[in-house]
Each structure stands twice: as C-alpha cells, then as structure tokens.
Design a protein around this nucleic acid. Structure first.
Lengths: 191, 191
DNA sequence: AACATTCGGTAACATATGTTATCGTCCGGC
DNA sequence: GCCGGACGATAACATATGTTACCGAATGTT
C-alpha cells in the first residue's frame, strides 16, 4: 500500500528518497517466485519493470487472483501486517525488475509518516480504495456473466489481456481456459 | 467501521458514551429503506436489534451483497467517506432497532480518536480486516462452486441461513433462487 | 535440426445453471 | 374467516460451462 502514495501525494516525496537506500533491487526472469504460499511476507514489493501475479493452490490447480504491473506496489497485506502465513504465492509473469523493502523499514516509515498531519485521512483513503477494489471484484461475480467479466477486463484494463497468458486470465475470471477461448471466439464472430 | 471498535478496544469506551447523545434511535418495521441506491450516505448505522441487507439493482433484479445483524455497524463506506452516490440500498430484513450517527459527528469522533496513541494501528487493523472480508468473498467465487459456497455459509455463518429469506441468499451466492432450492434438496438427499 | 514445453484453439460429451411456469404453504391485513 | 402477497419447492426445457482429448504454432534447449 505504500508506494501508491508516491504518485498521489508528492508532498511526501522526501520520505521515499530517504528509504531508497534500504531497498534491494533485483532483476529476475519470468516465473520467479517472490513469496511462497504459506510463508510469511517479509518484504514490500515494488514493480519497477515487468509484471507479477498473485495466485493460490486449489486442489492442485493454480488460480490467479490479481495482476501487478510497473510502478505498482504490493504485499500480501494480511501476511505482512499480521505476520501470518500468506494465502498467496507471488510470482513474476515476465522478466522483471523489482525493489524489495524489508518489513522492518516499512514499519519505521509508517511510524514517521503517522506524525505527519493529514496522514490518517491519507491512509484511510488508500485503504478504502483497496477495499473498494475487492468489493467491485466481488460484486462483478454476482452481477456479471463470465463473458461480461471478460469484456469489462478488455474495456477497463486492456493491458492485462495484452500482456498476461490467457490461462491465468481464465482462472482470474473464475472459468476454465477452454471456456475463455470459447468466449473470445464468440466475441470475434459478433464483430 | 466505527462501532466495531467498541467491543474490540474497550479502552476507548469513553468516546462512545460521549457520542451517544448524538445518535438517533429508530424502531422500524421490516423492509424499511435506510439508504437508497444513488443517494449520499449521511449516517453511520448501528444495528441494535434485527437484521439488515445491502443490495443493488441490476437490470430490474435486486441483488444482495451483504447482511448485518445486531451489534454490527455499517455505512456505505465509499459514499460515506467520499460523499459520492451510494452503490447500494440499505434495507431492513426484520423489524429492527437501529441507531444513526450523522456524518458530521463521525468526523469529529475520528478527529478526536486520531490523537489517541495507537489509533493508527487500530484503524489499519480494522480496515485490513474489512479488506480481507471482501477479498475472501472474491476468492470464494474463483475457488468454489455455488454448492460449496452455500455449505461454507452454513458452516461459517449459519445465522444468515436461519434468519434471511432464501431468495436474498441466492443472489448473494450469485445464483438463481431455483438453483439454491435445488442445492438444498440435493444436500438433504445426501444425508 | 530435433525435441520438449508452453500456449491457445476446437470438438464432443457430461454436468451445472438459468428461465419460466405451476403449486402449496404461511402470514398479515381486513 | 377470507384474501392477497411473499416465500419456497419442483418440473421441463434451454443454455452455459466444465472436462477430456487432440491439434498446431511458437519458443527455448540441446
């Protein structure tokens, strides 16, 4: 949740620079596991270049729940905040350049920021936005058919469809890869 | 998100009592609309007695997304925090006793609390928990069949199945009322 | 160049789910 | 006590979706 602040609240920029030195830069190939399901998250991850997915194992099937691209930050929030085993594996999709900021420094940074006036509203905002994100995903399952969900993806986040292998997208949409393929050819025929 | 604190963090109790006088007590019959979809949320709602649902309109169909019971508090978070039109209608299911705390006082209360040490971590915790809630709902759609989702509901939140009319539950599970009825009779046959 | 691996398309079949319609029960208002 | 509406079960049929299996293209490895 941290580096989202950087773009949105430039007035806090000095803090980021101060913590730059603690970040570890890594250049990794595709399919590199950054955090394994069941282990405790130790780093906040910032994507400089490339793309990453969060997934979990369901009776032998690997199911993707979220995608991250350049300039986005992520952590397994629940694991990171509460020191519990992560529900997800975090894995690169493309060869990527990432920065890791150890949990210890994240907490220091948070402590410093909390003294800044307006920080409470800031964090409320950021957390509310995240909450909204998952709520929208949830509602979309109640409201939309898989075909509609795929179209939403095409309209709202086309970069995902362009850069992510199709079978990851299928599990993210909650359907089989065969059915996603069917949906695509049905859409192509309509035009 | 406010009155969750009351049970979990008794050390903050004085604050609640102080704001008691600003709350408006209401005794309402079933199917009373407390907030209409499209309008801006003006009150934080606390359920003293009874039960409430949040729902939205989808092409003429009414779809329920969440249930609330006694001693729970709620608001249409996004509408409440950002003064935007609510995505949901909030409506009683049973005859209920509720307390309304106007937004103005909620903000005052938050401002006071933010001076309390440890409040930041507290609110981070509460927000993270809410986020987790919606994330789990979302993941359940990716992972589970409707039948499994119904069983989860039975196991984890049986009070919902007991007190809420079945067609509300069907839309909450993302299926038709007919199919939920089928699932129930299939389960009954298994035993 | 041969080869394995990953990825996506398609077909055929089985199963899950939606839609519409009908019926019976329960419950509140009159 | 009668009536209408809300609720839930069931059937019959249509459609959506999963599963398995096979093919071909692209890519990386040796």
């Amino acid at each position: 949740m941290l580096f989202h602040f950087k773009d949105k609240f430039p007035q806090l920029a000095p803090y980021w620079d101060k913590y730059l030195e603690f970040q570890k830069r890594m250049e990794v190939p595709a399919k590199t596991v950054l955090l394994e399901e069941g282990k405790v998250s130790e780093n906040y991850i910032f994507v400089e270049e490339g793309c990453i997915r969060a997934a979990f194992n369901d009776k032998g099937n690997n199911k993707t729940v979220q995608f991250f691209f350049e300039k986005e930050g992520l952590s397994s929030l629940q694991s990171f905040l509460k020191n519990t085993p992560s529900m997800f594996t975090i894995e690169t999709i493309e060869p990527s350049i990432i920065y890791l900021l150890p949990k210890k420094h994240v907490h220091e940074l948070m402590a410093e920021l909390s003294r800044e006036p307006g920080f409470l509203n800031l964090i409320l905002d950021v957390m509310a936005e995240r909450q909204l994100h998952y709520m929208r995903e949830f509602i979309s399952f109640i409201r939309d058919t898989p075909e509609q969900r795929y179209q939403n993806l095409l309209n709202e986040r086309p970069h995902i469809v362009q850069r992510v292998p199709q079978h990851y997208i299928a599990s993210y949409l909650g359907i089989s890869r065969v059915h996603l393929s069917r949906i695509k050819s049905a859409l192509a025929r309509k035009k």
